[in-house]
Computed example of a mutant assay.
Amino acid sequence: MPKIAADGQHLTVLNLFSTDAPEKQEKLLAAMREIVDSAAYEGWISSTVHSGQDRPGTANLIQWRSTEDLEKRYAGEEFKHRTLPLFGEITTSIRLLQNEIAFTQQKPELGGVTEVSPTRDDYTVIELFGVEEKDQEDLVDALGESRTWLLDVPGYRTHTVLRGLRARGIEGRFVVVYSQWDGKEAYDTFRDQPEDGRTADRRKTEDRVSALRTWQEENTYQVVHTRTAGE
């Protein structure tokens, strides 16, 4: 199964598709499964498909050997004349995000490894933050190293901070947080905790993030399909 690590060995691509109806989400998932199961692109390592939970949409977490390999895929006739038009018919937005993994953290019992797989029961949250170029590194730190207090939060499993490099569908710089939780109840309890019940460390970090971000959005997901090169 794919593993997320801040080792600098891969280009990590996160493709986010939103739509406006559950039946369109099912069409998206079927199309993505077909593409993933037939993938044989040079430099492609793995793809993991996520199904939107709070709002209709999908996410595909993809590992590539390099930016050059990914750009060859984007330049191909299949991608330009079949894949993009197909997704364009059933989505309300398409965001193709190229990233490098800047930080990972896991509960100690996970042995320092973040795995993504449909065989796991992770409740996955993907948060997207806009940021000014001059503030991107500060935001990466605020969302990563400065949130070790998450280890004490009930239901928390892992979180990964991705430094945005370039994108289609987004203007300007961005940072992504990919986190895993025991379930919806655990995450909702954390997210909706009253201000006066939050620790001082949490409030300090959240104030810092609020000052640095220019916009923010999120959705929750369940991993439904994965495949790696050679399977």
Rank of each mutant, 00 (worst) to 15 (best):
G8T: 06
Q9E: 13
L11D: 11
L11R: 10
L11S: 03
T12S: 11
V13F: 05
V13P: 03
N15W: 09
L16S: 04
F17L: 12
T19E: 05
T19V: 08
P22W: 07
P22F: 11
Q25V: 04
M32E: 14
E34H: 09
E34V: 00
A39S: 15
A40N: 15
Y41K: 00
S46D: 12
V49Y: 05
S51T: 06
G52Q: 05
R55D: 04
R55H: 13
G57P: 09
A59S: 09
W64K: 02
E68D: 15
L70I: 02
Y74L: 13
Y74S: 07
E77K: 14
K80D: 04
K80V: 02
K80A: 12
R82Y: 12
R82K: 13
L84M: 14
I90G: 02
T91Q: 05
L96C: 02
N99P: 04
N99W: 01
I101L: 06
I101D: 06
A102T: 07
F103D: 12
Q105I: 12
K107I: 11
P108V: 05
L110M: 14
L110I: 00
G112F: 02
V113M: 11
T114M: 12
T114S: 04
V116Q: 05
D121R: 12
D121N: 12
D121P: 01
Y123K: 03
I126S: 05
E127A: 14
V131I: 12
D135S: 11
D135N: 14
D135R: 08
D138Q: 15
L139P: 09
V140T: 09
G144E: 11
G144T: 12
T148G: 07
T148C: 02
T148I: 07
L150M: 15
L150G: 02
V153I: 14
R157F: 07
T160F: 01
R163W: 01
L165A: 06
R168L: 10
G169S: 09
G169R: 10
E171A: 12
E171M: 11
R173W: 01
V175S: 12
V175W: 08
S179G: 10
D182Q: 11
D182Y: 05
K184Q: 08
A186C: 08
D188A: 14
D188S: 13
T189M: 07
F190Y: 15
F190V: 03
R191T: 00
Q193G: 07
P194N: 01
T199E: 07
R202Q: 15
R203A: 14
K204A: 15
K204R: 15
D207C: 03
S210Q: 12
R213W: 00
N219S: 10
T220P: 03
Y221M: 03
Y221G: 02
V223N: 08
V224Y: 15
T226Y: 15
T226I: 00
R227T: 04
A229H: 08
A229E: 10
